[in-house]
Design a protein around this nucleic acid. Structure first.
Length: 260
DNA sequence: ATGGTTGCTTAGCAA
């Protein structure tokens, strides 16, 4: 069983690359973020022709998440249910999609970037991570197989950043963002890439600017987190840096885990 | 020291 997460930065701009990647890697489940497409404009036919069912929570222009799978999900939830703090923005934004496949729960998230530390978007990011933790507390248990996948827009540790001092004050590596992510995973989640790689690196995102990729000036902000019973079956995890190469790549690379 | 990129939508925002 192979499961991946990939921020594709527009499914329409990236469709050929995504289809080629599905052919080459034959994953069973893929969580996509930033599809930047309304739900009804998702390329369902091309994805189905490639052998995948698609659960989609789309949005025009921004955000958007989808879960592709060899077999259709048994059930899907497309929003966080904690809307009682008057955050209309959370309800409007397409950042959350959960699917159940038998006993396996897969949660796909696109955590807000946060723009600049101290901004309204920054507060929104921190609040969103807290809401996600509340969702887990209400609807899941660390004692059953669950995968929390996505673009978290947070690098957890020093070894997840090529140049930590340069990024320390940014929304991707600020101590408050790292603490919010640590609080989330303390619910009962294991970082699958860190089961198999001590680092420094691997990285999952490189800015389009400043020749960041050829210089490998990257961060690991895309993650696969699993509860213990699922992590115990994880035989490998890696980041497909090759998918960042060549013409018209996403700025993110896929993160992949294999389970016995 | 500065500026550099991409996608969506069409001048400016988000990342």
């Amino acid at each position: 069983m192979k499961i991946a997460t990939w921020n594709v930065n527009s499914i329409r701009a990236r469709l050929d690359r995504v289809l080629a990647w599905l052919r080459d890697h034959e994953p069973d489940i893929v969580c996509l973020q930033e599809i930047k497409t309304p739900t009804d404009a998702f390329p369902y036919e091309a994805v189905e022709a490639a052998g995948y069912a698609a659960a989609v929570r789309g949005q025009k222009t921004y955000n958007g998440v989808a879960i592709l799978s060899r077999t259709p999900a048994d059930a899907v939830i497309d929003h966080l249910d904690d809307e009682d703090d008057a955050s209309a923005r959370t309800h409007r934004e397409a950042r959350f999609l959960a699917a159940r496949f038998g006993d396996l729960h897969v949660l796909n998230v696109y955590v807000p970037n946060g723009a600049v530390v101290g901004s309204d978007q920054w507060a929104h990011k921190l609040a969103w991570l807290r809401r996600l933790r509340t969702f887990l507390e209400r609807h899941a248990t660390p004692r059953r197989p669950l995968l929390l996948a996505g673009d978290f827009n947070v690098a957890p540790e020093e070894r997840d950043v090529a140049r930590p001092d340069r990024w320390r004050d940014s929304v991707l590596f600020h101590p408050e963002a790292r603490a919010a992510l640590a609080d989330l995973t303390a619910w009962g989640l294991v970082d699958l890439v860190r089961l198999h790689h001590d680092g420094p690196g691997p990285f999952s995102w490189w800015d389009y600017r400043n020749l960041a990729f050829p210089k490998n000036d990257g961060l690991r902000i895309d993650h696969l987190f699993a509860t213990d019973p699922l992590a115990a079956r994880c035989t490998g995890a890696s980041i497909d840096r090759d998918a960042r190469k060549g013409p018209k790549p996403s700025d993110h690379a896929p993160v992949v885990a294999v389970f016995a």
